[in-house]
Computed example of a mutant assay.
Amino acid sequence: MKRICTFLIAMLMMASALNGQHSVARQWNEVLLESIRHDLGRPTVHSRNLFHISTAMYDAWAAYDDVAVPCFLGNEVGPYQFLFDGVEIPGDPVSVKNAQNMAVSYAVYRLLKHRFAHSVGAGFIIPLVDSLMLSLNYDTALVSTDYTQDGPAAFGNYLALSIIEFGFLDGADEEFDYEYDDLFYQPVNPPLAPSSHGDPSLIDLNHWQPLAPDSITPRRFLNPQWGRCTPFSLNENDLEVQDRNGVPYYLYHDPGQPPYLDTATLGGLDDFYKWNFALNAVWSSHLDPSDTTMVDISPAAVGNLTSLPTTEEEFRAFYNFFDGGVADSGYDLNPKTGAPYESQWVPRGDFGRV
């Protein structure tokens, strides 16, 4: 019991420290990031969480602004219509700010409680979320979504509920814990047990191989079905629908086929696949803090590319294999001053690590 009390006090102290230093949006962002740190490493899932929760904060703020236009509210987003009748905007700036803070807090609070309810780190995350609401003096028992009658708190609850409903329809398969069926992806190679020596069961070097850390349960490919998930900042012009095993497979900004390992001729660095890996290894050596090579990172030496490589020959010419850098020419003059840029020489290792 003593340990639990100490933990809760620590959560309150953390929330109170944030409360005194930053905006409400910043405080909730910090809680969101801390929640992600205590969850599994799921970059696709958490990029969606960041998208939805940041949009919730923006819409909660925008609803009480005379100029801003909400992103979700009042719009059809993917398969979901975000109904919105508007809110009553207070007449003085202080009341407007208070309404925005309250709406933001209730919206993010409800979303975080929903999205991380079954997280492996829920024992840490949920008390942290509760502690920030407590430090902001908001009543978590207020669950109304009737924002026309119950004000900013109910509006925040309504906004969160709308995004939760949207999240069950956006193609992410959230209701199934983001799992997918085998129509979308089936590994060609059997799982590799890292504790075993070698990989005698490998079938195709040019295909992904799942890992089975416990030699029994293989890791699954992350969300191969998410091409159909309602995106952020992508539109139909970016989309290509392909066929995979008779199932529509959605790809945004399809980069085409990657370099494949030539398993027949084994041509050394003539093999484009091996050249890519060797380039990465050589450039990794540039990160050495003891590397004495200096590079000019000013606009006089960096930038002003007129085209990007698209073929193997162009890629090989574009990247400086041994010294690092690409085939850019820099700029002759500063357009503001009309004078040449001054050189900015820095250690290559420092620049590479940044």
Results as ranks from 00 to 15, higher is better:
M1N: 12
L12S: 10
Q27D: 13
W28N: 06
W28E: 05
I36Q: 01
H46T: 10
N49F: 12
S54A: 10
T55M: 07
W61M: 08
Y64C: 09
D65Y: 09
D66A: 13
V69L: 13
V69N: 14
V69F: 09
N75E: 03
V77K: 05
G78A: 11
Q81D: 06
L83F: 03
I89E: 02
P90Q: 02
P90A: 01
S95W: 08
Q100G: 03
N101W: 03
V104W: 02
Y106M: 09
F116R: 04
F116I: 09
V120C: 00
A122M: 11
D130H: 11
N137C: 10
T145K: 15
Y147L: 12
Q149I: 12
P152S: 10
N157H: 01
I163T: 06
L169M: 15
F176Y: 10
D177T: 00
D177V: 01
E179K: 15
E179N: 15
D182K: 11
P191H: 04
D199H: 09
D199G: 10
S201Q: 15
I203W: 01
D204L: 15
H207D: 08
P213H: 10
S215A: 14
S215Q: 09
Q225M: 12
W226Q: 08
E236G: 14
D238P: 04
E240I: 15
Q242K: 15
D243I: 14
G246A: 06
Y250I: 08
D262V: 08
T263H: 03
A264M: 08
G268N: 03
F272C: 02
P289A: 00
T292H: 06
T293S: 06
M294A: 12
V295K: 03
D296R: 06
I297R: 06
S298P: 02
L308M: 12
L308Q: 09
P309G: 07
E312A: 10
G330I: 02
D332E: 15
N334W: 10
N334H: 12
K336R: 11
G338A: 15
R348L: 13
G349A: 15
R353W: 09
V354K: 03
V354R: 05
